[in-house]
Structure formats: structure tokens, C-alpha cells
Design a protein around this nucleic acid. Sequence first.
RNA 1: GGGGGUGUAGCUCAAUUGGUUAGAGCGCUGCCCUGUCACGGCAGAGGUUACGGGUUCGAGUCCCGCCACUCCCGCCA
Length: 600
Amino acid sequence: MKRTHHCNELRPAHIGQTVTLAGWVHSRRDLGGLLFIDLRDREGRTQTVFDPSSLPKELVDAASKLHSESVITVTGPVRQRPNGTENAKIPTGPIEVMVESFTVLNYADVLPFPVDDPEIANKVNEELRLQYRYLDLRRPEMTRNLRVRSKVATATRVFMEEQGFLEVETPTLFKSTPEGAREFLVPNRREPGTFYALPQSPQQFKQILMCAGVERYFQLARCYRDEDLRADRQPEFTQVDIEMSFIDREDIYALIEGLLKRVWNIALNIDIPTPFKRISFEEALNRYGIDKPDTRFGMELVDFTEDFRASTFKVFSGTIANGGVVKAINAKGLACATQGQIETMTEYAKSFGAKGLAFIKVEKGEWKSPIVKFFSDAEKAALTQKLAIEEGDLILFAADQWLNACEILGKIRLYCADLLKAQGKLTIAPGQFNFLWVIEFPLLGFDREQNRWYSSHHPFTAPVADDIPLLKQDPKKVRGQHYDIVVNGVELGGGSIRIHQPDVQKTIFEEILKIPPDETQLRFGYMLEAFRYGAPPHGGIALGFDRLIAILCNTPSIRDVIAFPKTAKGVCMMTDSPAGVSARQLRDLHIEVKAAPKKD
RNA sequence: GGGGGUGUAGCUCAAUUGGUUAGAGCGCUGCCCUGUCACGGCAGAGGUUACGGGUUCGAGUCCCGCCACUCCCGCCA
């Protein structure tokens, strides 16, 4: 018998109707005579009542033996619950279904972990949840995440369609482009020794689509990167990939602000204010020590380079004399930091090549610090004033070259914020979303080990027009037309205006990045060629769709918003992939495996 | 590749300085229970303390190794 309603549909208005529900046995309360079964489906749950005074004993006995998560249908009239027995916690609480007949569609064995109790289910070992993902996904929290993801995907498509974009699919069997992330390779059976590569992103195809006159392209694109994983990184993930012709940066900002406004509205019913704030890379580093600042709290970096230029404390003045800077943050109320916590922060500093971490604990009106004896009164006054030092504060210093000093304190700032949150001294409202465009990134970075320049974004990023003359004279100063969209310290996406003149592109490849011309030809020849036959100026952006959904669902791990994610070692616990293949498959692919197979 | 954390009953967790027969709640099995919704009551079953070594009169606990999961660094144009 087909169901007539879902399990979150019946209300007092249905009283008297005979209905059929189908779903999973969520919980069972056997009172000896009377038996209650909460029936659950995707939409919610409804209480059903088995009353022995009106039902055959065998039927009630059979129902009382059902394990949780068995699949049944029940049929019977909807009725108002007796006075005082309504359940205010669920929308179907005023009513119940008096069972007249029921059918077991599938008996469930005893479960490996409970799915009905959110308190326990939330704490279940993730390994187990991933192994029995179909059970995990039945939990209302996970169902909600899938639903948010689906709604946002649809909202994105509708919005992009409204804005005149075409959704175009691009190949996932691509070719290897050695720069960038490590790639997954797919052996080609037809020609021994040749391989496809799975794309890290559809970057080159979307630029070619601009040359094809598509003008406005988007795609919910699956991308693949064979790098080590994190809570916010999976080997395969989804990007909202976008590219537009005849535009400048402002068009991208406006488009994405519109898209995110729509998405937040649909997913959370929140109206986020636009336009978003913008901050340059340099300012982000200066104030927050990171290129994706979390601006929901202060604790900003303060510069003391001028105050310590002539200091007798040689660690500071010496660094400044070598072209470095001195910066500090005030972790308000963290003078209670333990030796271990100071140690952790010192390790952060050392991982950036610093020799140590200078600090001051302000306790009982005293500055407790190994270095404060070297400070003059004027230096102390400058610290007190610029950092607004008070009792209970912890001051942390970095003295190093500008970028390093900023990044050290940026790390420490986030670590201190976590400590303060744990101590209840810093609270961040859950519904707060600080969106930010980070702009004016340097186009190029310098790799000391390899003694060459590299693209800080990718080699197709256009320089800021005014800076093009600097390309050959002072590459470090060239700003790229690159932008990142950041929310609450999470990099949601990034993109750039692209180079569309083949001569500029050639200069970047050959004179700046020093890629030999024959190699340029081999790897990017088809792109340079496409740019010779009428390439419109264009630019684009890609948003990390999984991260976007994780933020909307307020979860720290993108695994919670992916139906079947992989573990940190890239294993699918449910299907046990990756796995070995037969000798015959290897032979067909002309592949010989030299490593010994892993034993179980 | 490196560093941190975790691993004890089906699940979530205890177990004092190394010391009796490794406990509890939930779940499971049986019995009782007609208005529960975390139903309740009684009884019971359930353990290679991830795995392999070692120290010790004695190891869940200490040491060495190893595996899995997880967080971070490197890496992710």
C-alpha cells in the first residue's frame, strides 16, 4: 500500500482521515498493553499507537519485536491525542495514528550505533559513521545538511541562469599540467605509457570557453587534487566555477555578492549586507597577519618598528636595522596562559624561522617577562598606549622580516582566540558572517630555493594595468588582478582577471617564470593559439562549494556536507576503496606494479 | 614526510601510585507493565583493554614497535 502522507505532514486538520505512512521505526515504547512506535521518514516523525483492545494479539506482538530502523507501513485513522499527552517537541505532536494494520517491508538487525539519539550519535566515532554512512545519513542533522546542499545548488543554478550564464560541462579526463597540485592519473589503454589526468579545476577549459564566445559560463564542477587532506580538504571536491567576458573586477564582486546574498537568504533566511568590505593583501597582513582574516574579533597586530629602531634591546633593533619589523598583539585576559601554551606559540614562531617568542604577562600590576628589563620608559609607554595594556593581558612580539613577522603573529592571534573562546573570555555570535574581499595580491612570489619567480595565484592572472611596466624591472611590486572572497577566516573562493593578450602571456611564461618556450608550447600551446584568434578580455572566480555548505551548516568539517567522503588517507570506509585490481586489468593498461601489495 | 590527540562491552565513557573477579549508562535477550514520547521495573548475556613484543611477583596503566582514525605543519599554481 502506498503512503498517503509523509511523517511530518499530519496535523489536527487531518483528524478522522484514514492514512498510510511509511518509514523507519525511530523509537518504540512498549507499555505492556499499549505500544507506541514513532515512525520516521526524511521529513519528520509521527507517533503511531498499537492498542491491543482493538488489534489481534499477534499483530501487537509482532510490532513489539521490531528493532529500531526496521522499515514498515502503517494504516489507520488520525486522531487527536488524549488531553495532556500531546508532544510539544514535534510538529506532529498534537495527533497520532491509530494503527489498524501494518506491514514490515524490511526487518532491521541490531544497529552498530544508535541513530535515534542525537546526544550519542553526535559523538559516535567518525570511522564507524563513515563505514555505515547510510545509517549516519538517516540522522536528522545529516539529512538537513544534504538538504541545504541541494537547495543551495539549485539556488546557485537559478541565480546564474537569471544572470545570463550557461552551465557548460568540461572534461574530467584531461591532461597533466605539472604546475600546481599533484594530479590523479588515468592510464590510457589505447596507447601504452600515456595518461589522462583528472583536472585540479576547469581553469583552462573555462578560458577557452570565453574564446568560444560563451561570454558567461558557470559549472558546479568536480575537481581532483592528490594532496594530503584536512578537515576542509577532500581529494575530490566541488567548485562553483565561473568565467565572464568583457568585464572588470567590479563585475565579479557584484555578481558574487548577489549570489551569496541569494544563497544566505535561501539557506538561512538571513539578509547579508552588500557590498562586502575590501581589504588589500598588505593591509590584511599588517592588521591580521593572514590573507584570510577572521574579522569577527579584534586582537589586531600593532607595529612598533619605529618605537624600537634605536632600542638597546638588540634582538629588536638589530632586526629593524636588517630591514625587518617589530610587531605585537595584545591577547586580552590571557596572562593566565600556561607554560605549555606559551611553548606551543613559541613553536609556531620557530616554524617560521624565528629564534623564539618574546612575551609579557601583565599580572598583579607587574610586567612579567624575560625581556622587559631591556626596555626604556619610552618604549614601555609606547607599548602601554598603543596596545591599551591592562591587568591580565598577554603581549606577544614578533621581530622579523615583514611577511614573516606578520604571519607569526597571525598564527598566534588565531591560537590565542581559541584559548580565549575555551575560557569563555571571547564569544562570537553564531549567526555572524563577516564577508571580505581580499584584493591586490602580489602577482609573483620568489622561491629562494629554486631561485626563480612563481605565480602566487596562477600564470594566467593579469597584472594590474598600471604595474605592467614593472614586470621586467621590479616583479615583486607587480600587483595581480586577483581577489579572494573570505568569510569568518575561511577562504571561500578566489579568482582573477586573466591575461588575454598572447604577448603578455608569453612574457609571463618565458621571461618571468622562465619556462622554456618548447615547454610552454607543449603545455599551453593550445591556449596561446586560442588567444590569437579573437580572445575577449575575461575573468572569473571559483567558490569552494563544500566549504560554502559547511559554513551554512555550521560544521567545521566538509565531510559533514559530503554524502560519501574519504578519510584523511583518502580511503572510503564504506566501499574500502582504493583497492587492488586484477592482473588482467593491469595487463590491459600496460601497467606493471613494482611495490609489494599491502597486506591486510 | 614531521608533530599532537584518540583507541577498554554493539555505542558513549569510567577504572587512584602498576595491585582483588576491568565497571556504569544506553543498546541487546527474557519476564512484568494500557498514555508513553530519553517510558518505567526486575533479571541476564556480553571483554584477546586495536595489534605485536618487553619490563615486573603482578600491566588497561610503564617501555619499544606497529595499525587505524583524527587535528595541525609541510603540501594544496
